[in-house]
Design a protein around this nucleic acid. Structure first.
Lengths: 166, 166
DNA sequence: ATTTTATGTCAGCCTTGTTGACTTTCCAAG
DNA sequence: CTTGGAAAGTCAACAAGGCTGACATAAAAT
């Protein structure tokens, strides 16, 4: 096997084998990533779709339905079914826009925040333990690779969330 | 905000905010991760489930149905539906085990390998470009965090694939 | 001879995605 | 003031891909 070197830096990390392992790591890790919230939600009448809606409403309170739609990347019909049950159950509240009254601004209720915290804490526990095991340098790399993997539109959403958070 | 330090090393990377960003990065990146194969498969009669089966059969030719089942983490009924169509379409072949004739050992046919390559190349292109953008150090961290995020059983499967590959 | 294991299959259900068609509300441009 | 179009909601129908339960078969193991 010829080792390709450019500027003294090995490019072995770009071999098909290395890239394949990254793909498989994503697959297996994503299973773990969703496992804990999934466990909490089974038994309740909710699923992963509800979790995602709750997460992003909690993360950006007052966002419109359209914003949420483009973050989640599903159709309005699909999201609507989820939002309807969440509103019926009193977890999410939709307030008519003050400046544009066609828009609905979404908020978690107290009850919604409680579920959000429960789900979020479970997911963060796993993530935090992975972070701790891997260390700060690894975490920085992790975030860099993931960000480079996103579609541009998703990267914009991600960056917007980052700003709001920092 | 109090900065917690232990042994001179900042633990700021373990704050809830940082961990949340990791969670969102996983969410958005996974969308990109699956986008290219999904695009290829739409129009064919296949979906993500077929892709996963094809990937792991291609990765470990001769594996049994049971092995694949535990890698994929679905029920045999669910996998069977996928495998049946793949075999009917001549992409996958099941050979009766020589030592234990109850077992079916799974292989990709030539046709199956062609589709595998097509899907894999699309997915690898994105992953490789992300790797290149982030650099070797980041990639190492990426892999470390993902591995720490897996459930133990998934980590075993992942490690087994690594061995076979190196 | 009996039990267990590996696999396959039928039937039916659920979640969550899709498309298409239609309505209501309401801002904004003419 | 009227009207075009955007935002949102709703209904219906469908598909993929999960799930459980029940049952069948072949072959290995006891």
């Amino acid at each position: 096997m010829a080792e390709t070197v450019r500027g003294g830096e090995s490019l072995l990390f770009l071999t098909d084998e290395q890239v394949r392992k990254g793909i498989e790591a994503m697959f297996f890790a994503y299973r773990g990533f969703t496992a804990d919230p999934d466990r909490i939600l089974e038994g309740m009448d909710y699923g992963r779709a509800h979790h995602r809606a709750i997460h992003f409403i909690g993360r950006g309170p007052g966002g419109t339905v359209n914003t949420l739609l483009s973050i989640l990347g599903v159709t309005k019909q699909s999201l609507n079914r989820v939002l309807r049950t969440l509103m019926e159950d009193g977890l999410v509240e939709a307030r008519v826009g003050r400046v544009d009254r066609r828009e609905r601004h979404l908020y978690l209720t107290e009850k919604g925040m409680m579920l959000e915290r429960q789900l979020s804490e479970a997911q963060r526990a796993r993530m935090r333990s992975a972070y701790r095991a891997a260390g700060p340098q690894a975490v920085a790399g992790f975030r860099q690779v993931l960000e480079a993997m996103m579609d541009p539109e998703m990267r914009r959403h991600y960056a917007a969330l980052k700003e709001g958070a920092q």
